[in-house]
């Protein structure tokens, strides 16, 4: 399991406006493309110095490809990263202010303390 890599996906997609839209429209394709092309890239290094070993496990890949934020919470993805990116993708679909944020809380309502560990 690689909480780090899940976080890296959320982090790198969130900061790129085009990738935010691409992930919204085609989650499965974006996750596959990102894992193939970008997962191994060390952010401060050029492509020839990429890591050789990082990859998602099947559960992580499915959670990301399914836009499944309750599953991401359960896997210990950093909740700030998940929330920020998912607000960017889905807040627009709700008419009421904070409508998406409240729906998000409701869908996580089966979790109680202690929450899944987010340490990487």
């Amino acid at each position: 399991m690689s909480k780090y890599l899940v976080n890296k996906f959320l982090y790198t997609v969130d900061r790129d406006p085009e990738l935010v839209e691409r992930y919204r429209e085609d989650p499965e394709g974006t996750v596959a493309w990102w894992e193939e092309r970008h997962a191994c890239r060390i952010l401060n290094c050029h492509g020839g110095e990429s890591s050789t070993w990082v990859r998602f496990d099947d559960t992580e890949r499915a959670a990301l490809a399914g836009h499944d934020y309750p599953a991401l919470f359960e896997l210990g993805a950093h909740p700030f990263l998940t929330l920020t990116l998912f607000i960017a993708m889905f807040e627009r679909d709700y008419e009421e202010p904070l409508g998406f944020q409240q729906e998000y809380a409701r869908r996580l309502s089966h979790f109680s303390l202690p929450y899944p560990d987010i340490a990487t």
Binding site: H78, F80, L83, Q101, Y104, A105, L108, S109
Partner: peptide, 9 residues
């Protein structure tokens, strides 16, 4: 709380 069940109350 951010990204959890108690957020935005």
């Amino acid at each position: 709380e951010l990204g959890g069940p108690r957020q935005f109350g």
